[in-house]
């Protein structure tokens, strides 16, 4: 489904700003991968680059989605292919109702695939169902997109979009940060219920605790722009116990 090959990434227009220093990663269809790492390791950069953020430049390497390179595709084209990024800091967009926004997103995807658009009635039903499932205050989604939402509400809103859009590859960028245990359970429940042989997940996280609720197939440790270790779910527990220090250049040489 997704192959990342020797990916090197810098910040646009800033010299010596390399953040990702040669990433290799393969996510097969149906797999759940967790990418763990300390602050500043490049986790969020990786998530954003996968979705096509233009503040970064790819200096080397490639990203293949279903065997095709996507590095020249606009973010919206990647979304149409079935990719989804749950943002760590979702943007606030005054005056745009979440309902209207999601319908437009769904329509854009249907359009690009030559599929019929969902009727307003069907969409309304689906939307109400999902709003209840992710536990968002129904009053909130009648207002502006993310504006005046608490941190937790923003994350729930990301999950709402994930569940409505039903992507084939979902990237969750620190969706667990700032969440209380109840919200954490809702995120985990969302992912677990959507887990299927046709869908893959990349879960970017600093802490192991989300992985108590979502069992990943593969865990990668990303440190200083490189994947330093790959393993099974047990790797997350090592991090929980010993921290990231053992993987950092300072820690390793000590």
């Amino acid at each position: 489904m997704l192959e990342i090959k020797n990916l090197r990434v810098s910040v646009l227009d800033i010299d010596d700003s390399e953040i990702l220093k040669g990433i290799d990663l393969t996510v097969k269809t149906g797999e759940v991968h967790a990418i763990m790492g300390p602050n500043g390791s490049g986790k969020s950069t990786l998530a954003n680059v996968l979705m096509g953020r233009t503040e970064y430049v790819i200096t080397e390497g490639d990203i293949l989605y279903d065997g095709e390179s996507i590095i020249d595709l606009l973010p919206e084209k990647r979304a149409h292919l079935g990719m989804f990024l749950a943002f760590q800091y979702p943007a606030e967009i005054p005056g745009v109702r979440p309902w209207q926004f999601l319908k437009a997103a769904l329509d854009a995807k249907a359009d690009s695939r030559g599929e019929e658009k969902m009727s307003i009635r069907d969409f309304s039903k689906l939307f109400d169902e999902k709003v209840e499932a992710v536990g968002i205050n129904p009053q909130l989604v009648k207002r502006s997109l993310n504006e005046g939402f608490s941190g937790g509400e923003k994350k729930r809103n990301e999950m709402l979009q994930l569940e409505v859009l039903q992507p084939e590859l979902a990237i969750l960028d620190e969706t667990d940060s700032g969440l209380d245990v109840d919200a954490l359970r809702i995120v985990a429940h969302g992912v677990n219920s959507m887990r299927s042989p046709e869908r893959s997940f990349i879960i970017v996280t600093h802490y192991q605790r989300l992985l108590n609720y979502i069992k990943p197939d593969v865990v990668h440790i990303l440190v200083e722009g490189k994947i330093v270790k790959t393993g099974g779910p047990e790797l997350a527990l090592d991090v929980e116990k010993d921290g990231y220090k053992q993987y950092t250049s300072v820690g390793a040489s000590a």
């Binding site: 979705m51 606009l74 973010p75 919206e76 979304a79 990024l85 926004f101 437009a104 859009l165």
Partner: peptide
């Protein structure tokens, strides 16, 4: 970027 990542041009 937020809106485009959801598929809007």
């Amino acid at each position: 970027f937020y809106l485009r990542a959801r598929g809007l041009s």
